[in-house]
Design a protein around this nucleic acid. Structure first.
Lengths: 213, 213
DNA sequence: TGCCGCACTAAGCGCTCGCTCACCTTCGGC
DNA sequence: GCCGAAGGTGAGCGAGCGCTTAGTGCGGCA
């Protein structure tokens, strides 16, 4: 647990699919800058500077500054969806799958906070077409979590008043980790993941959650 | 319930303390613009235009664009703190006070989403001094919620593993409402408030939460 | 060796930004 | 009826923005 995933350098390895090298360096620089200052407050000169290049070099690899955000958003959302999907398709009870999904999703938001911040909070800076594409991925994330909760209700494991609302609340809780989590704070990503898995099981009325610990 | 509080016009009445009239109109225009596009993507010309004034008029009432954000942030946080404080000092069990605090705090974030968005998500755009001042108010919000939870644990009403972490999660859940809540969506602020109060009682291990409904 | 193509840079274009300044109205007090 | 303060405007400054373009250095191939 908590391998390279939770260091800034480790975050970089998630971008391995981006080539060539210069394009990847620019992308990583953009992620850091967007996370620190926000999309609109970040200049193309800042991004290029962090990547050790001149401002013009950015435009050899990306058409516009927005394309950078779009690429980051899509790769990030695909990663998030993959995490939830993997957890949802695991063997086991709904209780186990929900706990696994929440703890790994939270670990990603806490450990890869830089990336997650951009992915979750800079969506509105995209143009309408790009935003719609990303929103489709987001709806798929929602569907994965909802499916687990519905399974649990059907199996009599969970006791939920409003499946749609509870799904939203669970995702909301996980996503907001990216806003407040601080690497220098009192918790490791693993600890927050475990705490949140417990809280979420309580939210879905899994009677054993409190008793088991 | 859900009176003027949940319309854009109704939100405006919260700024009654700001005088003179022109300064208040500018402030309300700024809240709307910041909420829609974010602080950095909003221009002073846009703010002045929404208030029906020339760009220069802004600088008669405010020294800089950042001062506008600072004022909005402070007034908004004071309002949020007042809501939590009122709920915390109510008569009743910890269970009742926590439910009341969450439902009214959530109602504020959902109904006054425009304001809440600026207050909760544009903090990083403030300078260091202003940010520190706002963070102090935020810590007081945290303390109010934590006190209720500690009361409940002491009284044997709640069963909580980690008071600090649970407090953070409760506040995080409420605050994130400002990000996703949509006035045209399927829920009213009251409905979300009630749902969230139930979810939070479950999170703190209030055994009766599920059974009672 | 000579040359091409590509990754990259220095310089800078056109534009819009936050903010200022000289000037104009309105109006209560004497 | 005149005056100064308060609150407003139109024009525009300097700076910095996203992005472009002409030119440079260099690895790979005949």
């Amino acid at each position: 647990m908590s391998t390279a995933e939770d260091t800034a350098g480790g975050e970089a390895q998630a971008w391995g699919e981006v080539t060539p090298d210069a394009a990847r360096r620019l992308l990583i620089a953009a992620v850091e800058a967007f996370a620190e200052r926000g999309y609109h407050a970040t200049t193309t000169r800042d991004i290029a500077g962090r990547a050790g290049m001149s401002p013009a070099a950015l435009y050899i690899h990306y058409k516009t500054k927005e394309e950078l955000l779009h690429r980051i958003s899509r790769i990030g959302h695909e990663k998030a969806l993959e995490i939830l999907r993997t957890a949802a398709r695991q063997e086991g009870t709904a209780r186990e799958r929900l706990a696994g999904a929440v703890s790994s999703f939270v670990r990603w938001h806490a450990g890869g906070r830089t990336t997650a911040r951009v992915v979750q909070y800079e969506l509105d800076s995209l143009g309408p077409d790009a935003r719609e594409e990303i929103l489709a991925l987001r709806r798929q994330c929602d569907a994965e979590v909802r499916a687990i909760i519905e399974d649990g209700v059907a199996a009599g494991e969970f006791d939920v008043l409003d499946v749609k609302g509870t799904t939203l609340a669970v995702l909301s809780l996980c996503i907001d980790v990216a806003r407040w989590f601080n690497v220098d704070g009192p918790w490791t990503p693993d600890e927050v993941g475990a705490l949140y898995a417990d809280l979420v099981l309580r939210m879905v009325g899994d009677g054993g959650a409190a008793a088991r610990r």
